[in-house]
């Protein structure tokens, strides 16, 4: 089963990359605010069903893919 993990800097954590992207978009003429840069991890998970896959990916996030002090994560399953 395909899984996608979205990892984001937590609210309140300074994100200089997001600020730089926001400024660059401003130079291009786009009126944007609150740009934040995170990362995406695509996985193929061996699991019986969606619940089992989600439980596995949750553990992966807690143990490695995200640092809970500074990052939040979101899991998308399917495909």
């Amino acid at each position: 089963m395909k899984a996608t993990v979205l990892v984001r800097p937590k609210a309140g954590i300074l994100d200089p990359q997001g600020d730089a992207v926001e400024r660059a978009l401003g130079h291009l003429g786009f009126a944007v605010s609150d740009a934040r840069v995170g990362k995406v991890v695509d996985l193929e998970v061996n699991a019986e069903d969606e619940a089992a896959a989600r439980a596995q990916v949750e553990k992966m996030c807690e143990q490695l893919l995200a640092n809970p002090l500074i990052e939040s994560y979101e899991i998308e399953l399917g495909g």
Partner: peptide, 10 residues
């Protein structure tokens, strides 16, 4: 405790 992130200056 804590974590180390990208320098604010990038």
């Amino acid at each position: 405790p804590g974590s180390l992130l990208r320098n604010a200056s990038l």
